[in-house]
Write a protein that binds this DNA or RNA. Structure first.
Length: 789
DNA sequence: GCGAGCAGCGTACCT
DNA sequence: ACAGGTACGCTGCTCGCG
């Protein structure tokens, strides 16, 4: 039976992937990106843009851009009201029409993208399988929808990476050719790894092309032939794709990678620019990895492909000097080929790790994979809330116009007494803020109500009888996550099902943890200072109450930070601490729960620099299995030289595991000696720091800015956001004068590294083990070097 | 004109 | 372009002294 060109009504099934809209005869038509056996498009012309007005029109009001209006009953800012639903002629006219109408009252939901509006109104989510009726390419009716358990393996995927000639260091797209295109289809099957290039190389994965032009054309052809549905790259939106298109232009050919033989469009989305390809999903892994970094799910300091792969897998991938790629091509092209191939492999590994969570987020939130890939956590929460608001017949609130810039009072952090301790137990509240929100019905529209209420320590009242939208949505997320966790226990690790549910669980965790921040984010629709400050006030209340009760039970509370509690076991048994835990949990409201985090035979808290007081957020704990948990120390910071970090780490390990001050001092002495004799390689002396502003916008000349300025003078391109890796050299007075990028540094200032890096990093810890104040002072005043000679 | 002392800029970290 | 709490190095200013 032929499906083509049939104008008869037909019933079909296919999976929804994304939606956007096109304009036909001045009308906006929704375009659904679907996948049956193949990806295709379906059109729905029966949907119009609209927004709401809470106010009254003058009788004679007329506007050609307004094609309809009706009174509807809605819940607006928590109150039931009659408002006007105003239907616009075309989405692009909505802003203008709203301008014309806003004088008559408060307008709402005028800034929701049209396709997003469609998905929300129809309650459609990506990866739903739709059973629908169509006439040709027109969708006439959705008969049913079911959530589909799609994952990466259901798609034809291609991961790619290009290498370019760069005799000037940075490749120039008008003249420097693309040398190779490495790619891999459908996961990491070795036989699917290939490399397109114009040199004939004795490697089994080479696909030879006559020249650069035919290689580019071959790539486009490949996407078509293999019917690629998801195209992955690393930083491909900013580099690979634009470069390929520029080369195609220069070579007078096309770069039409879309299913409809279009090219791609660069979209600016907040932080990131992403390249949108029609009819295929292009997903740039770089912004995805950045997202995981920003929310703290991936704790790394640099987001280069090399570093992400190394940190994620613990393996090192083959690397080459970027500046010398052109030389490799000329002299050792097979090395370059292997490198390119290694980049593809690394990208592919990163995809395996992160894309399942992106799928889970997409299914849960209802944004397409492409949208999720450039999303922020606030957008995720907001989309969830808007969808639920729509179901509850609520109008989504507008973003706040003005706000109080003074921050609200946040978490409680207890000042620790510096010292080395034995036998500590750490408890923490499981999802403290999310559980407070749900257990106390914290919502911008349940606040300050009459009647029964949860009263926050600040006196804000959250009513008990009407559940707010925020706790309702968050509660569902928490419930779903609990179900996932339960199911995971019944599954064997490494199974496909486990992976999928684990990814879902991770996605739900990301979402749950984003609600508190969202409520205080100044551009959020549900912004509420009073909710935010109530949450932290409850947080402070519960953690300090718990500490108080621990003290009453005879435990010494060493340290508290936000939701975690460090207690000293003293002469008590572990069981006693655990029964204390139970007693706390009996009294906690709702889904709040204190958890046993761990037992630590030994731990160290240090004092603040140049002060007797303890330092907060800086400690090291030795676990029962011998692992050491380190927080806040210089050694976890990227703006300290590796030599200092490594030394500090060794000192910590010696102190915690062996308790030997002498051994630690000996080690420090050796390092100082190596520094003094110039044996330490430059790489261990690099200090990394980001220029968060434009180089010209600083009031103060910091070392990293000094290094950057000198590099700029030598023709390097350095802009806002660049990570500067510098070495402190001998030349100059101030540190900023001495600082040079690693690549330009000729020598290093051993005095600086000894007195400003090694000594401060280790003295803190050593001083907790018997170094007296006198020792400390004499270290500071005397020639530091003498002490070590 | 110069060094000591200090405030505040700036970054990265913790939960 | 999700929050607030915190440490701390460095710069560049003020101040006191000469």
């Amino acid at each position: 039976m032929s499906e083509e060109k049939s104008n008869k009504k037909a019933i079909r099934k296919a999976v929804l992937l994304d939606a956007d809209y096109i304009t036909r005869k001045d009308r906006a038509v929704i375009r659904l990106i679907m996948k049956g056996k193949k990806m295709f498009q379906l059109y729905d012309g029966n949907f119009s843009p609209y927004f709401y007005l809470d106010g009254e029109f003058p009788d004679n009001f007329n506007d050609a851009r307004m094609v309809g209006k009706e009174k509807v009953k809605k819940i607006v800012l928590g109150k039931e009201k009659e408002v006007w639903k105003i239907v616009a002629r075309h989405p692009r006219e909505v802003p203008e029409l709203r301008e014309a109408i806003k004088q008559f009252g408060e307008t709402y939901e005028y800034d929701i993208p049209f396709a997003k509006r469609y998905l929300i109104d129809k309650d459609l989510f990506p990866f739903m399988e739709l059973k629908y009726e169509r006439e040709g390419k027109k969708l006439t009716r959705i008969i049913s929808k079911t959530k589909k358990d799609s994952s990466l393996k259901d798609f034809n995927t291609l991961v790619f990476d290009i290498e370019t000639y760069n005799p000037q260091g940075i490749p120039r797209e008008k003249q420097d050719p693309i040398l190779m295109i490495g790619y891999e289809e459908n996961g990491s099957l070795p036989q699917k790894k290939k490399l397109m290039t114009s040199k004939k190389l004795p490697l089994d994965f080479i696909e030879h092309y006559e020249d650069e032009k035919s290689m580019l054309e071959g790539f486009t052809q490949k996407l078509k032939e293999k019917d690629i549905e998801i195209l992955f790259g690393y930083n491909s939106s900013a580099f690979d794709l634009p470069y390929m298109r520029a080369r195609a232009d220069a070579l007078k050919t096309n770069f039409l990678i879309g299913r409809d033989s279009s090219s791609f469009k660069i979209q600016n989305r907040g932080f990131y620019t992403v390249a949108k390809v029609n009819g295929r999903m292009h997903l740039d892994v770089y912004p995805i990895v950045r997202f995981f970094g920003i929310i703290g799910a991936l704790k790394i300091t640099s987001f280069t492909l090399e570093n992400v792969y190394a940190e994620m897998s613990g393996k090192r991938k083959m690397n080459v000097e970027k500046m010398k790629i052109w030389e490799l091509w000329d002299q050792k092209p097979e090395v370059l080929a292997k490198y390119c191939s290694a980049d593809v492999m690394a990208t592919s590994e990163i995809i395996k790790r992160f894309i399942p969570t992106i799928f889970a987020l997409s299914k849960t939130v209802g944004l397409s994979l492409f949208d999720i890939s450039s999303s922020t956590s606030s957008l995720l929460v907001e989309t969830l809330l808007m969808r639920e608001a729509s179901k509850e017949n609520m109008v989504s609130p507008n973003r706040p116009k003005g706000y109080d810039p003074t921050p609200i009072k946040g978490a409680y952090v207890k000042l620790p007494e510096p010292g080395v301790y034995e036998n500590m137990i750490v408890f923490d509240f499981r999802g403290l803020y999310p559980s407070i929100i749900c257990s106390h019905n914290v919502d911008p529209f349940t606040i300050d109500c009459e009647g029964e209420a949860f009263v926050s320590p600040l006196g804000h009242r959250f009513c008990k009888d009407k559940m707010g939208l925020v706790p309702k949505v968050l509660g569902k997320i928490l419930e779903l996550r609990a179900e996932c966790k339960k199911k995971l226990k019944t599954l064997s690790r490494n199974s496909e099902e486990y992976e999928k549910i684990n990814a879902m669980q991770q996605a739900l965790k990301i979402l749950a943890n984003s609600f508190y921040g969202y409520l205080l984010y100044v551009n959020s629709r549900w912004y509420s200072r009073r909710c935010g400050e109530s949450i932290t006030a409850w947080g402070r209340y519960y953690i300090s109450e718990t500490a108080k009760k621990a003290e009453e039970r005879g435990f010494k509370v060493l340290y508290i930070d936000t939701d975690s509690l460090f207690i000293l076991l003293g002469d008590k048994k572990k069981e006693e601490a655990l029964s204390f835990l139970d007693s706390i949990n009996c009294e906690l409201p709702g889904n709040m729960e204190l958890e046993f985090e761990g037992f630590y035979p030994r731990g160290v808290f240090v004092s603040k620099k140049a002060e007797e007081k303890g330092a907060k957020k800086k400690y090291a704990l030795l676990g029962e299995d011998g692992t050491i948990k380190i927080r806040g120390f210089e050694l976890v910071r990227r703006d300290w030289a590796r030599i200092a970090k490594d030394t500090q780490k060794s000192v910590l390990e010696i102190i915690l595991k062996e308790g030997s001050k002498e051994k630690a001092v000996k080690l420090v002495k050796d390092v100082v000696e190596r520094l003094r004799t110039g044996e330490v390689p430059m790489e261990e002396l690099v200090i990394y720091s980001t220029l968060r502003k434009k180089p010209g916008n600083y009031d103060i000349l910091s070392p990293e800015l000094g290094a950057a300025q000198k590099a700029i003078a030598r023709g390097k391109k350095i802009e806002k956001g660049t990570l500067i890796g510098y070495v402190v050299t001998k030349k100059g007075k101030s540190i900023s004068e001495k600082a040079e990028l690693l690549e330009f540094a000729q020598d290093y200032d051993s005095n600086y590294y000894i007195n400003h890096q090694i000594i401060p990093a280790v003295m803190k810890i050593l001083s907790e083990l018997g170094y007296s104040e006198e020792d400390l002072k004499s270290w500071g005043k005397q020639q530091t070097l003498d002490l070590f000679s």
